[in-house]
């Protein structure tokens, strides 16, 4: 692995996510190979790379939607193991936003957002709803609270999904291509919410090819290919002087 500075995979401050020597197999297929990456508190890391390079798999391992096979993953001091309590603990600390939103279609927007706080954190209904309304205010759609997801546009649905994750007051947010299922005119409204979140000090790992977003708020960019981390650096580094041939080729395709 080549990096501009020796410790580019290390966070500058105290790390909230540590991934060390992590491998992931799907049967015979070696999907992730020897992944080392740390993410510091309040840091924003953008992950880019060609399709099938393992970006989704990487962030899905961090909240155990996929089980890693070797190495260590530590989130906020808790190591991911087969212990269900550890897994639950980490999932509560980690919010995730999916490409396909994955809102619960049989529940209203308000119920989508309050479900986990009420069921997992035992927040009283009134309090959970008040918090949900504040979050909807923040993502700009408080008037949709009583509607069903099917009645909303894609951009609105994704903002609800972000609010739903935030309702658990997570310490880390994972985003898996949050804008790639959206029509172009809706991408900005979602990115705006994410930028605001980043500026508010949220720790974020974002898989996205929106390089404008990376330039605006990312502290570091990670380029992956074939299940490996190929290059890590600041957005500036990627725009001006990427070291690896593969990185240059990839960037020339998406920029």
């Amino acid at each position: 692995m080549s990096t501009v500075f020796a410790d580019a995979t290390q966070a500058k401050g105290e790390a909230i996510i540590q991934v060390e020597g992590m491998h992931k197999y799907f049967g015979e297929f070696h999907a992730l190979s020897d992944i080392d990456i740390n993410v510091g508190r309040q840091e924003v890391v953008v992950v880019i790379g060609p399709s099938g390079s393992g970006k989704s798999t990487l962030i899905r391992c961090i909240n155990r939607l996929e089980k890693h096979d070797r190495g260590r993953i530590v989130v906020d001091g808790i190591e991911l193991s087969d212990d269900v309590r550890n897994i639950q603990e980490i999932r509560r600390e980690t919010g995730m936003v999916f490409q396909q939103f994955n809102l619960f279609p049989h529940l209203t927007v308000l119920e989508n957002i309050t479900l986990a706080p009420r069921q997992v954190r035992r927040v009283p209904k009134a309090e959970a709803e008040q918090h949900a309304m504040e979050l909807l205010e923040r993502v700009g759609i408080p008037q949709q609270a009583r509607k069903y997801p099917g009645q909303l546009s894609g951009g609105q649905q994704q903002r609800v999904a972000i609010a739903r994750s935030l309702a658990m007051k997570p310490k880390v947010m994972l985003f898996d291509e949050p804008t790639s299922a959206l029509d172009p005119e809706m991408i900005k409204e979602v990115l705006d919410v994410m930028v605001e979140l980043a500026e508010g000090g949220m720790t974020m790992i974002v898989v996205t090819h929106e390089m404008g977003f990376a330039r605006a708020v990312a502290d570091r960019v990670v380029f992956m290919a074939d299940g490996q981390i190929v290059e890590v650096g600041t957005p500036e580094h990627f725009f001006t002087s990427p070291q690896e041939e593969r990185t240059r080729l990839f960037l020339s395709q998406i920029l």
């Binding site: 909240n63 155990r64 939607l65 639950q88 999932r91 509560r92 980690t94 919010g95 995730m96 999916f98 396909q100 994955n102 809102l103 619960f104 479900l115 986990a116 069921q119 997992v120 739903r164 994750s165 658990m168």
Partner: peptide, 18 residues
């Protein structure tokens, strides 16, 4: 029911039976 529904529930930290 799409798999994403299960994953969304898991990602929110809901226990399996919930």
């Amino acid at each position: 029911v799409p798999k994403g529904q299960l994953e969304a529930g898991q990602a929110l930290g809901l226990p399996a039976w919930k």
